[in-house]
Amino acid sequence: MNAAGRWVLGVGLAVAAWAVISATPDHREHTADPIPVPAALGESVDVSGMTVTVTDIRVTDGLEPPGGTALGGRWVVLEVSVLSRDSDLNNPLGGATMQLNDTLVTASDLIPSEDRLDRAAPRTGLVVSGSILFQVPPDAPLGEATILLSRREASESGVWADDQAQLDVDLGGIAIQQDLAFDAPTVAAP
């Protein structure tokens, strides 16, 4: 092969290598999006080292936290049980969000941490049950919502686990209650 042929072959291989590198997704970009695992009300789903069961969904105008002052506004309350199989979990459901219409709602931080399941300490091999609370914007119509439940791998925002429970629900079909009282998270044997 003459010198010109070697040059053409070398440039061609360099272009091919560049194309492969450009087409290969960055590892951080690839793992940034959790894989949704379909969930249904009352059924258990295994995600990120834990078994999650959404046992009830309620919509209320007003909340009465345990030992706290009543809060007004519209709320979506999820009753959830979590069985942790991973001793490295810090917050079992630190990544609880609800997509309602065009609005992304995160679990409310207006309620003290000790009264919320999304901030409850996990217990490996035990079931922790409690409420996850979403305050719905007053102008948001109730309708189809997608609820995503996942754990955070670290305390930094934006670092997610590899999968998450995804529950699709029609909030418009749930009767609105008044001043719903809820309990702090409880721990029980499975």
Rank of each mutant, 00 (worst) to 15 (best):
E156Y: 09
V127Y: 00
S44V: 07
V45R: 03
Q135R: 15
I147N: 02
A107D: 15
T106Y: 11
I57R: 03
S81F: 01
Q177W: 05
G125A: 07
G130F: 05
N90H: 11
S157G: 12
S129L: 04
I176G: 01
M50F: 01
G95C: 11
G67P: 09
A154P: 01
A165L: 08
V54F: 00
G42W: 04
L110I: 10
S129R: 08
V80L: 09
P122M: 09
S44T: 15
V159G: 01
G62M: 12
E144K: 02
R151I: 04
G68I: 10
D46H: 08
D170L: 01
P122D: 07
V54W: 00
T60V: 12
A70R: 15
L133T: 09
I147F: 03
N90P: 00
T60G: 08
V77L: 14
L126A: 13
W160V: 06
S129I: 05
E64R: 14
T146G: 06
E64T: 13
A107P: 07
P122C: 10
V59S: 05
D102E: 14
V59T: 11
A70V: 15
D168R: 13
R85E: 15
L93Y: 07
R116E: 13
A70K: 15
T146H: 04
R58P: 02
D163M: 05
D61G: 10
N101L: 06
T53I: 10
W160L: 12
D115H: 13
S131H: 10
G73L: 07
E43Q: 15
A121L: 13
R74S: 08
G49S: 08
W75D: 07
T146I: 12
T60P: 07
D163K: 05
T106N: 13
T55I: 05
N101H: 11
Q166L: 14
V80E: 02
V128C: 04
S81L: 03
E79G: 11
L171M: 04
A165N: 03
V76P: 03
G173Y: 02
D61T: 14
G143E: 01
G42Y: 04
A70T: 15
P65T: 12
A161R: 02
G62H: 10
L142V: 06
S108Y: 10
T124P: 01
E114C: 03
L78F: 05
I174E: 03
G49I: 08
I176K: 08
N101I: 02
A175S: 12
R58H: 07
N90I: 14
D88I: 06
Q164F: 04
P66A: 09
D102R: 09
S108Q: 11
G67I: 11
S113V: 13
D139T: 11
T60C: 10
A107I: 07
W75E: 09
P138W: 06
A165R: 02
S131P: 11
S44F: 03
A175K: 09
D162M: 04
V159E: 10
R116L: 14
T146N: 09
D118E: 15
L149T: 04
G62L: 12
W160I: 02
R74Y: 09
R116D: 10
L148R: 14
D118R: 03
T55E: 13
T60M: 09
D46A: 11
E153V: 14
G42V: 05
I147T: 06
D102P: 01
E156N: 10
S113A: 15
S108G: 11
S84P: 06
S157L: 12
R152F: 09
A107K: 04
V47Y: 00
Q178C: 06
F134K: 05
V52Q: 03
A154I: 08
